[in-house]
């Protein structure tokens, strides 16, 4: 199995199914193309199954097991033929990797299939470093950035050093760590609208730390967190732009940053 000895397969061709994530698909396709570029540069053949929509987290975290199981089956079916499943999101990757097997554990027809796909699923930056053995990239980015650790990626998948390692190889880039980079930004899916006021306090704390880091660009590996933080940065007028880490790593930063006006 490839995942047993990840580095050995570093130069083998690998068929990767890109799990775009519903947010990237809808809100920021440029992140998807950045992910494709990074994966192709790492020697992967990338495909994007049309049968994917959402990993099911909104239903799963609202206690709706039936719908989340249905979406899990749909996603598994779409991706089980690939060597790897990669998502530009720690949250969605953790959903597939950590939660699908539990969600379908009682379903004899699906349990093994869930485990099969789960074991092959990775968050983008950790896939590049841990599985493909990528330690440096050819990208250039002039500026000071700060990095927010999305909760699921950090605590469910152990994604912490991987994006930083890749960022360290980007020429011209300086990483200024914010305080409490590992503390939740207050997004939490439907949490941010159901408990809007609590979420607001959390994201206010978060952007205070971002502003004090001195960075001009905020990076993260999850578009949900980024939409939340960018929306608050914009609302409060903090002059920090927000981008998905893949955009910088792929040197695809021509599109306006999240929440910025188009440059015409």
């Amino acid at each position: 199995m490839p995942q047993d000895s990840p580095l050995e397969s570093a130069y083998a061709p690998a068929r990767v199914g890109l799990f775009v994530t519903c947010l990237v698909d809808a809100m920021r396709p440029s992140v998807g193309f950045a992910a494709v570029k990074l994966l192709e540069d790492a020697g992967c053949a990338v495909e994007v199954p049309r049968a994917q929509t959402c990993c099911g987290q909104p239903a799963y975290n609202s206690g709706d097991r039936a719908d989340s199981q249905a979406l899990a089956r749909q996603t598994i079916e779409a991706f089980e033929g690939f060597d790897y499943v990669v998502a530009p999101s720690g949250s969605c990757a953790a959903m597939i990797r950590e939660h699908y097997p539990a969600l379908l554990a009682e379903d004899p027809a699906w349990s093994a299939r869930a485990q099969h796909v789960a074991a092959r699923t990775y968050e983008l930056t950790s896939f590049l470093t841990d599985v493909r053995g990528v330690s440096a990239l050819a990208a250039r980015f002039e500026g000071t950035v700060t990095y927010h650790d999305g909760c699921s990626g950090l605590r469910e998948l152990g994604v912490r050093e991987q994006p930083r390692q890749l960022l360290a190889s980007v020429r011209g880039l300086t990483l200024n760590e914010m305080r409490d980079s590992d503390v939740c930004c207050g997004f939490g899916g439907t949490f941010c609208v159901k408990f809007s006021d609590i979420s607001n306090t959390m994201v206010s704390d978060k952007i205070d730390g971002i502003a004090k880091s001195g960075a001009r660009t905020l990076l993260a590996g999850d578009l949900g967190c980024l939409l939340n933080m960018a929306g608050k940065l914009k609302r409060t007028g903090v002059p920090v732009e927000a981008r998905h880490v893949a955009e910088v790593l792929a040197e695809m930063t021509d599109d306006p940053a999240i929440g910025e006006a188009a440059k015409d």
Binding site: V20, V24, D25, A26, M27, R28, P29, S30, G32, F33, V48, R50, C192, V193, K194, S196, D197, S199, N200, V203, L227, N228, A230, G231, K232, K234, R235, D255, P256, I258, G259, E260, A261, A262
Partner: peptide
């Protein structure tokens, strides 16, 4: 034009405290 919305229908929980970044326009798919 602005890159974001200060208000959106059915998104009051979001826009009460933060802007809603505008999508790029086309879906990835």
């Amino acid at each position: 034009r602005k890159g974001r919305f200060a208000w959106l229908p059915f998104a009051g929980g979001w826009t009460r405290h933060r802007d809603f970044p505008a999508p790029q326009g086309r879906t990835f798919q």
